[in-house]
Write a protein that binds this DNA or RNA. Structure first.
Lengths: 111, 111
DNA sequence: TCAACTACTCATGAACTGTTGAAACAACCC
DNA sequence: GGGTTGTTTCAACAGTTCATGAGTAGTTGA
């Protein structure tokens, strides 16, 4: 993942609705969920959901496929992991405290 | 780290200038760097730098202290780690593929 | 006190983001 | 074909973000 992709992914995630979207899609796994079900699950209008899904897909964090009249969306766990790897390694140069706090969030004081 | 803090941190990081800022400040460690040196290092005007520093500090990703006529800024590695822990655990529910790609970015195919 | 230095604040305008509702498109069933 | 369901696109609007430049405030040494 390069800087441009990381910025796109961060921009995509920096939104409450889209964070909810990830939280819903990640556990759904590769089978994903149809747009209508996502809209009902999050209480969003169709056009609003479509806007946010497009933003997420444009950033490479989710992917879509058509299944008859439904469009199924699924998270791309690899892209999410790659973003975190970018933040950890490229941005923070694998700083030990960042890494420790990331892996063991309960430890240590508040920074 | 709760959702509101995570959104603030993601919004702060979703900007090229501020990503550069982190990249500069993390290796500088707890000693940090004075604003003027950061401005020279990144080639930013004083007001533009101040705007972005305030955004980062508001999100809790950096902290400042006054040292005579200088203001010194330093990264908060704990906050960066906490953001990643939030993404990994709360958002992705510690999804194994996300975690694996985060820790071993070289492995596996493109997602 | 003054000048020099360092950093911040503020107003402005351009560009971007996100919500809404209407319209359009696509696939299905009768 | 006509109606129904599922989804996307579009235009309009409000709100936010960001770059710029001018002005302001705090610190230091003469």
């Amino acid at each position: 993942m390069d800087r441009t992709q990381a910025l796109a992914a961060l921009s995509a995630l920096a939104n409450e609705t889209r964070l909810d979207l990830i939280r819903l899609l990640v556990p759904a796994g590769p089978d994903g969920l149809p747009a209508g079900e996502i809209a009902r699950g999050l209480g969003l209008s169709a056009s609003r959901l479509s806007f946010h899904l497009a933003a997420m897909e444009g950033a490479g964090l989710i992917r879509s496929r058509r299944a008859s009249r439904h469009v199924i969306y699924a998270a791309c766990p690899g892209a999410l992991g790659a973003l975190m790897a970018y933040l950890l390694r490229d941005c923070c140069q694998a700083h030990p405290e960042v890494q420790a706090r990331c892996l063991h969030p309960g430890d240590g004081g508040g920074d």
